[in-house]
Write a protein that binds this DNA or RNA. Structure first.
Ligand code: FES
Ligand code: FES
Lengths: 131, 131
DNA sequence: ACAGAATGATACTGATAGGGTATCATTAAA
DNA sequence: TTTAATGATACCCTATCAGTATCATTCTGT
């Protein structure tokens, strides 16, 4: 199991770079070196964050990306939910009816609690924390 | 991201079933109904747990599987590490050199802390808790 | 007007992991 | 010797991960 996939990894580094840059926009070309991933791939990732409202984008010459919110308002959980999709609960939690005694199931409750606390941890880390 | 895959899900149910059964061994045929998965698949899963020393196995007629340890000594983290492999850290944590400032990296430390606490949670749940 | 630099959108590819089936060998009880 | 069980492999299909390629669009500077 991988907690964070590469997209989240790259995105976090790129966003930290942007937060530090103190410029209206930063182009992918300027970031690729520091982030350590090819330009087209990083671009696709940042486009997804743009669609999700986490980044602003300016097209055309001199354009690029910028944080759409203050760094302290962009959370690791935001990146995860956009780039890895929502945290899927364990199957019996998700698809009810998989086993009987669904409501009383202790595994379900334990796992649900663990996932809630994991999400809270991902929520508690912001881009500002990483600068 | 899925915290627990189906193998872990099925295995947990099967192990709880065995713990409750109070018999020397339980065959896969006896479990498949309660666990809700096909016999060959459940069998493969339990064989892996046997290889890992978590289950005992008795071949031949009347045979089956049994817990190799007391239920309070079999942890959710055991099932996860056998059936999902070890928790892989985020890429930059794992493959050093991916980005510079590796030692000082805050993302790395944050994620590492989150993963440690997640593992501790998986460690704290035993089969006994689920009976 | 035009060239160049940037993102938007989409399609494609290859590798890996998840989820599952099928088959044959081996063991032991009845 | 039949039958019921696990041991060990070899497959298969599908989805996700990771990355590339291409063309369209928009904006700036000359
Ligand atoms: S609800 Fe299915 S394992 Fe608990
Ligand atoms: S060590 Fe690579 S992102 Fe921190």
């Amino acid at each position: 199991m991988t907690l964070l996939n590469r997209n989240v990894d790259y995105a976090a580094r790129a966003l930290v770079f942007m937060a530090r840059a103190n410029k209206p926009t930063v182009s992918v070309a300027q970031m690729e070196g520091e982030v350590g991933v090819s330009r087209p791939f990083l671009r696709k990732t940042l486009q997804r964050l743009h669609k999700a409202g986490i980044l602003q984008a300016v097209k055309g010459k001199g354009g690029g990306f910028a944080l759409a919110r203050n760094p302290e308002n962009i959370r690791l959980s935001d990146l995860v939910s956009v780039l890895q999709g929502p945290l899927k609960l364990n199957d019996c939690v998700f698809r009810k009816q998989l086993c009987r005694h669904h409501d009383a199931c202790l595994l379900r409750h334990k796992v649900s609690g663990i996932e809630t606390r994991l999400l809270a941890e991902l929520d508690s880390v912001t881009i500002k924390d990483l600068i």
